[in-house]
Computed example of a mutant assay.
Amino acid sequence: MSKYEYTILPEYSPLYPALPYHYEDYQKVSVYCRGDKEALQKFLPKEFKVTSDVFEVFVLTNIKIQGLDLYSEGGIVIPCQYKDMEGACVAFEYVDTDGALCAGREIWGYPKKLAEVQFEKDETSIKGVITRKGKKIIDVTFENDNSRIIEPPNLSPRLQVKRMPNPETYGTDTNFVIKNILQNVEVKKKVYGQATLYIEPSVDDPLNELGVKEILGAVYIEGAFTLTYGEIVENLNK
């Protein structure tokens, strides 16, 4: 069997390789915010129900990956429930390479878009900025402060809705609820802190409508994990 038979398109020169992907070294800033539940619900797939008014804004850069080209990303993660299953949905996600974009959308249904990602770190602070179509849709500054310990909400497993358009008519031909769990998770370093967050209004990426009321705290993590196949929880087209 050819190695290309595991991938989708193009068969002779695939955009991304077969799973798993080993994220051996990443750096991530997570900012935990209290928002408006009605606003958070609006940004979830209609099948999901928001379970907390505390959500995550993150910016992440990868230092070493086996499987994909290096990329950086950021986004919004909202705690939610599908029927009796609780987890969290990545409601917005931005990456800076086409391989990460297409693998995330085509395999698991992550709602990835291409954007510019800035991640700058020194001994006491980190600056993370996501820019798309000229708008700074996520602008985070993190400062070390181990007196600001925060207990994050439950954000695992990831629950996503993978929808693909039907090529013959308006609607979907793929419409799955997907559960995805990171494997071999390792936290190499964790630093608590405080953060500022600015979200520039954008028609194309209306993160400013999330209704941020309060920043509860922030965490910087250096770690590793393995990303592999998820599980189809339900076929919504049946």
Rank of each mutant, 00 (worst) to 15 (best):
D145R: 09
R105C: 02
L155K: 04
V140D: 06
A100L: 02
K113N: 14
L159A: 09
R132V: 15
K190T: 09
E151C: 00
R163H: 04
L210F: 06
K37C: 11
L101A: 04
T169Y: 08
I150S: 04
E123T: 11
S13P: 00
D96T: 01
N154C: 05
F142P: 10
E222T: 08
N180E: 15
S125W: 13
I178T: 13
L40W: 08
G109L: 01
S147Y: 09
K112A: 06
V57C: 06
P167I: 02
L40C: 12
L207M: 13
I149P: 07
S2T: 14
G87P: 09
L236H: 03
D205S: 04
Q118I: 08
K135P: 02
A18L: 04
P153F: 06
K136T: 08
V177A: 09
S72F: 00
D145P: 10
E120W: 03
G104K: 12
Y21K: 13
Y26R: 12
S30R: 04
T228N: 10
K3R: 11
E222L: 00
G193T: 12
L207F: 06
G99L: 00
E200A: 00
S156M: 09
I137C: 05
G35I: 01
Y32W: 11
A100V: 05
R34V: 03
N208H: 13
I78L: 08
L207N: 02
K49Q: 15
N146E: 15
C33Q: 05
P153N: 10
F55R: 09
N62E: 13
L207K: 04
Y16L: 00
F225C: 11
K127M: 00
S30F: 01
E234G: 05
Y4W: 14
K238N: 13
G67D: 14
E231G: 02
P14R: 09
Q41E: 14
Y198T: 05
I78N: 07
F176T: 10
E222G: 03
D84V: 09
Y94K: 07
K213H: 08
P167G: 11
K238H: 10
K127D: 00
P157G: 11
E38K: 10
Y6A: 07
Y23F: 15
G104H: 13
N144A: 14
L182A: 14
R34K: 14
I63Q: 15
E106I: 01
K83C: 05
G171M: 01
I126M: 02
L114I: 15
Q66S: 11
V203Y: 14
E186I: 08
P157W: 13
E93V: 05
A39T: 03
R158E: 15
V77Y: 04
N235M: 01
F119Y: 15
P45N: 12
G211F: 04
